[in-house]
Design a binder for these strands. Sequence first.
DNA 1: CCGCATCCGGTAAGATACTG
DNA 2: CAGTATCTTACCGGATGCGG
Lengths: 155, 155
Amino acid sequence: MAKPVDPLKFWTEGTPMVPAAPIVNCPIATSLGVLGKKWTLLIIRDISMRKIERFSDLLKSVNGITPRVLSTRLKALESDGYIHRAEVQKTPKVVRWALTEKGWDALPILMSYVAFGSKWHADIVFADGQRRDITDVYPQSNLRNLEVSLDKKAW
Amino acid sequence: MAKPVDPLKFWTEGTPMVPAAPIVNCPIATSLGVLGKKWTLLIIRDISMRKIERFSDLLKSVNGITPRVLSTRLKALESDGYIHRAEVQKTPKVVRWALTEKGWDALPILMSYVAFGSKWHADIVFADGQRRDITDVYPQSNLRNLEVSLDKKAW
DNA sequence: CCGCATCCGGTAAGATACTG
DNA sequence: CAGTATCTTACCGGATGCGG
């Protein structure tokens, strides 16, 4: 039943760009475990970008999430190595959820959504409703090529 | 009930990187409509990277999806402007699903997952099980900085 | 209080069959 | 070929409870 995975190529105007590495399983499908579930990226967003690290604070910052789902996601994220749990204090119990190196490496994924939203949902995202390139949202960083070049002249 | 959206910052070792643009709604949460649902990214992957554009072919290529869900996703993707439907021929009916410009702009999101999977799921993704940087998977493209620089020296 | 666990009803997803 | 129709199952949202 093991279906051979055909290489993932970019296609632009009939021109394929074949991967240079021998891919035997789709890296996208493989990455879409916990990361692909509802709420997960927003939890990582708040831990990484907003420094919100406690259960009750995440409950407030991730708008709409319920304690049940938050608890479930935190456990899954922990067992998959994205975050780790630190009991900072007991009575009253204080738990801190922090990103691991793997968790931090999910930030480019978040940023690709930021870039997409800044272009295609500018009316909702920005006060002035103007489209922005990611480099105009975070100019200090070096996010130059987050926009994958689909210009066929590039290859 | 409208909660004010605090700016999305990068945090590295206590150093925040504040966005230069006035964000009033989270671009990540806003982008996670159809895109955030199960199967959606894999459908876009196959249309964009594998040139699989027909219903029955997608049914085979997106491993595990059912016709009901595929139909639902294609409709949602269409109404949200990511793809469009073209009836190429009737009797026998042939339908082609193609990406719009908006749909093509989702490719950086896919690539960020490719990059993540190439690093953190290399044992599953690659035949030799070796970690790879995205620039080694697609050297011909200019994906240099898909790995968001989290080096604090960068700002 | 904080950090969850439990229970319950609704909705989305899986399995399979079927139609124009 | 390109989807529907139908049924079952898994997951999610909402309220509540409970130990430390």
